[in-house]
Amino acid sequence: MSRPTRFLKDNGLTLAFGTGFLLTLAGQAVSGHADFNNQLVADDLQPIGFLPYLTTSDFAVDVTENWQSEYLQFFLYVFGTVWLLQRGSPESKKLDKAGVESDRAQKVGEHAEPSSPRWAARTGWRQTVYSRSLGTVMGAIFLWSWLAQSITGAAAYNEEHLRGLQAPVSWAQYLGSADFWNRTLQNWQSELLAVASMAILSVYLRQRGSPESKPVGASHTSTGVEGG
């Protein structure tokens, strides 16, 4: 098998979803540009070109408000599943595994294997940082994208107000506005519903061949068992 073919096979999941992300982002940009210009025309204003639209706060806030909710989902899921369990779900650890688990089970420190990541074999702060790196990065991206949403959202909100000859608001005032929290909470509730649905539906339903599902013949009470 050639190296390019091996690379595509070994990274198929990331490449497929990454490509899908870029295509849908492009589609959002095209449809958002058309909708934005429709609003400008309705307000008796001059439409703008596609490239200028990509630099507008209107486009930026639509993108970042979705990113922050997705990374919130992953952040809560990564940390929540350390302690929270769901009997019968492959999304949960086994019922006797709640918590951070032992060094032996996690293969850290003196229990690290030759193939383990270098910092997993260390002790002290390096092991502590690496052992929580996934959730920390997810949380950091969430906070960054939420901050970006608040800044771009304030700009978009003020642009809309100025078109209606209304006074703009400060960033701090926008953080307390109904617009900001409506944008935020409508995304959060959908992400939390999706996680809860996946946790409970995977108890009783199956998808043959998916690691997100239990084996088809596994009992409903089997917990922390994934297909392959």
Rank of each mutant, 00 (worst) to 15 (best):
137 V>K: 03
151 I>N: 04
80 G>D: 02
32 G>F: 04
77 Y>E: 08
36 F>R: 00
180 F>R: 02
135 G>A: 05
128 T>E: 12
163 R>Y: 08
34 A>W: 07
52 P>V: 02
157 Y>H: 14
156 A>C: 09
7 F>G: 08
226 E>P: 08
79 F>H: 05
187 N>Y: 15
67 W>P: 00
122 R>F: 10
105 A>P: 01
88 G>F: 00
73 Q>T: 07
188 W>M: 10
28 Q>T: 05
167 A>R: 11
116 S>G: 03
94 K>Y: 01
133 S>V: 12
23 L>S: 07
58 D>Y: 12
58 D>S: 13
202 S>F: 05
209 G>I: 08
199 A>T: 06
40 L>I: 04
215 P>L: 03
115 S>R: 12
187 N>K: 14
181 W>S: 05
137 V>E: 02
116 S>W: 02
32 G>S: 06
174 Y>P: 00
108 V>S: 00
171 W>I: 10
148 A>N: 08
208 R>P: 04
69 S>A: 13
2 S>N: 15
152 T>R: 01
82 V>R: 03
220 H>K: 15
177 S>Q: 09
188 W>C: 09
221 T>F: 12
67 W>R: 03
7 F>C: 11
206 R>I: 09
123 T>C: 14
20 G>A: 06
83 W>P: 01
228 G>Y: 14
33 H>E: 11
39 Q>Y: 10
126 R>S: 13
138 M>K: 04
97 K>A: 14
111 H>R: 01
27 G>A: 08
62 D>Q: 11
21 F>H: 09
187 N>L: 13
125 W>K: 09
154 A>Y: 01
123 T>A: 15
126 R>T: 14
75 F>D: 01
63 V>Y: 05
27 G>S: 08
132 R>E: 07
42 A>G: 11
176 G>P: 00
21 F>T: 05
52 P>D: 02
145 S>G: 06
195 V>M: 06
108 V>Q: 00
23 L>H: 01
130 Y>K: 01
141 I>G: 02
156 A>Y: 00
144 W>R: 15
228 G>N: 12
165 L>C: 13
149 Q>R: 14
24 T>D: 05
205 L>T: 09
127 Q>M: 06
62 D>I: 03
72 L>H: 00
74 F>T: 04
177 S>A: 10
57 S>F: 05
126 R>Q: 14
78 V>E: 11
79 F>I: 07
67 W>Q: 09
116 S>T: 07
24 T>A: 13
160 E>K: 15
83 W>F: 15
117 P>V: 04
58 D>P: 04
14 T>A: 10
187 N>R: 13
18 G>Q: 07
142 F>Q: 02
186 Q>K: 14
22 L>I: 13
88 G>C: 06
75 F>G: 02
15 L>E: 07
186 Q>E: 13
163 R>M: 07
55 T>H: 14
93 K>D: 09
49 G>L: 07
88 G>A: 06
